[in-house]
């Protein structure tokens, strides 16, 4: 499915291009825009909880946050804006909108796109899968034997004592139980299989979406070039 969503880097390009267009609007209204820019961040996949022992040992149950290199250099915090400039920025944000660049991001609330629908269906199908159910049962039994409780029934998150040490300990024991139940990546793999099965039925539409994505990224790059961003950063 990743072919139909923006990659982390592409998302930075598109968002930065939109921001340039908004700032053009603000400057056209007579305001000066302070230097801006910086890196982005992305979270690891966490649908079925922690899936890597090294990540659990480092972060406990908190998803890994990766830094995505930005198109623009990091800048100091922007100075406070006047009320009039804030109003203008809000107005420009509304008028520019996405500037025709679609939001192709996994996990957006309320997204009714085909990709999202496929993922939603795959999640439901995965949760009905007998292998998934056996995996989940084995995992829960293993956790119970170690005295670890779920945050709530059906959740993949677990209760811990609150200290960082205990959070990491619980996350590591969670991984041990997943390993003992067939591997931490098993539910992710099952999900991917259900996604793949549905993709076959919608290949033509997905091909069109892939083209739309490529077109959007290319357009974003052109906007960035037009605003002086060097090709090496695109």
């Amino acid at each position: 499915m990743s072919a139909y969503w923006y990659s982390d880097g592409e998302n930075v390009l598109v968002n930065t291009a939109v921001a340039f267009l908004i700032y053009d609007c603000v400057e056209d209204a007579g305001f000066t825009v302070a230097p801006w820019g910086g890196a982005g961040k992305a979270l690891q996949d966490y649908r079925y909880g922690q899936w890597s022992r090294s990540l659990a040992a480092r972060n406990g149950a908190v998803p890994e946050i990766r830094v995505i290199p930005g198109v623009m250099d990091e800048q100091p915090e922007r100075p406070p804006l006047s009320t009039r400039q804030q109003e203008t920025e809000a107005k420009c944000t509304n008028s520019v909108g996405r500037a025709g660049l679609p939001e192709l991001l996994d996990g957006l609330a309320g997204d009714a796109s085909l990709q999202s629908q496929i993922t939603r269906n795959a999640v439901v199908l995965t949760e009905l899968d007998s292998e998934y159910l056996a995996y989940r049962k084995s995992w829960e039994e293993c956790l119970a034997a170690k005295g670890i409780k779920l945050s709530e029934q059906g959740s993949w998150s677990l209760q811990s004592g609150g200290s960082k040490e205990d959070e990491i300990r619980v996350a590591l024991l969670d991984l041990d139980c997943k390993d003992a139940s067939g591997g931490a990546r098993k539910p992710y793999d099952l999900l991917a299989e259900y996604q793949a099965a549905q993709m076959i039925d919608h290949q033509a539409e997905l091909n069109a979406l892939a083209e739309e994505k490529v077109g959007a990224v290319e357009r974003a790059k052109q906007i960035l070039r037009d605003h002086g961003v060097a090709d090496a950063r695109l």
Binding site: D8, N11, V12, N15, T16, V18, A19, F20, I22, Y23, W36, G37, G38, A39, G40, K41, A42, L43, Q44, D45, Y46, R47, Y48, P63, I68, G70, Q75, R78, E89, T93, L105, D106, G107, L108, A109, T119, R120, V123, W156
Partner: peptide
């Protein structure tokens, strides 16, 4: 949010806790 987001460029990325 896009204006401050251009500074932070926070990606919603790969996470699925919401989806879950």
């Amino acid at each position: 949010w896009l204006v401050p987001a251009a500074l932070l460029v926070v990606l919603t990325g790969l996470g699925g806790a919401y989806w879950a």
